[in-house]
Computed example of a mutant assay.
Amino acid sequence: MDQVGADPSFSAVGEVVGDRVTVTVTGEVDMATAGALFEAATPGRVTAATVDLRAVTFFDSAAIHTLVRLVDHYAGALEVFPSDRVRRVLDIAGLSTQPWLKQS
């Protein structure tokens, strides 16, 4: 994916332990980086995911779309730890009461 104009501090690093991937995300998640987040969160042969967004500084509609895709992909086996900014965006989008959204 083309990263031109993307936050140079963005990273999405996944670590697989057993059947769960834990992805730690930093920087801005937007149209330029959302695909990389999805790829990091969906390595082969895992059935559950934890996405740590506590170091995310910007989160847009492309990022929300990626979370919705992950919710579908992991069907009840996803947990997301948001930063305050991410939580606010998800609140505005009407997603703040979802069971996959955890307290930071």
Rank of each mutant, 00 (worst) to 15 (best):
M1Q: 04
Q3F: 10
V4Q: 15
G5I: 00
G5V: 00
A6E: 01
A6D: 00
D7C: 10
P8I: 01
F10S: 11
A12Q: 01
G14D: 14
G14P: 14
G14Q: 08
E15V: 14
E15R: 15
V16Q: 10
V16G: 14
V16W: 02
V17S: 15
G18V: 06
G18R: 03
D19T: 08
R20E: 12
R20K: 03
V21N: 07
V21S: 12
T22S: 15
T24W: 03
T24P: 05
G27T: 05
V29Q: 06
D30I: 14
D30K: 09
M31N: 10
A32I: 04
A32W: 05
T33P: 01
T33K: 02
T33D: 06
A34V: 08
A34C: 11
G35K: 09
G35H: 11
G35L: 12
A36Q: 14
L37C: 04
L37Q: 02
F38N: 05
F38V: 04
F38Y: 06
F38T: 01
E39W: 03
E39D: 15
A40C: 14
A41M: 09
T42V: 00
T42K: 04
T42P: 05
T42R: 05
R45E: 13
R45I: 07
R45T: 12
V46W: 00
V46L: 01
T47W: 01
A48V: 02
V51G: 08
D52L: 12
R54Q: 13
A55T: 03
V56P: 14
V56R: 11
F58Q: 07
F58M: 07
F59G: 10
F59L: 10
F59R: 04
D60Y: 00
D60C: 09
S61Y: 10
S61E: 09
A63P: 08
A63N: 06
H65S: 13
T66C: 15
V71M: 03
V71E: 08
D72C: 10
D72A: 15
H73E: 13
H73G: 08
Y74C: 04
Y74V: 02
Y74N: 01
G76D: 01
G76W: 01
A77T: 02
A77M: 02
E79K: 06
E79W: 00
E79Q: 13
V80T: 10
V80P: 10
F81R: 13
P82F: 05
P82G: 14
S83F: 03
S83R: 02
D84Y: 00
D84E: 07
D84Q: 04
D84L: 07
V86R: 00
R88I: 01
R88F: 01
V89W: 01
D91L: 05
I92Q: 05
G94S: 08
L95A: 13
L95Y: 05
L95H: 06
L95D: 11
S96A: 15
T97W: 09
T97C: 14
T97G: 14
T97Q: 14
Q98I: 06
P99S: 11
W100Q: 09
W100H: 09
W100A: 13
W100P: 15
W100N: 09
W100E: 06
L101P: 13
L101E: 10
L101Y: 07
L101T: 07
Q103G: 06
S104I: 12
S104M: 07
S104R: 11
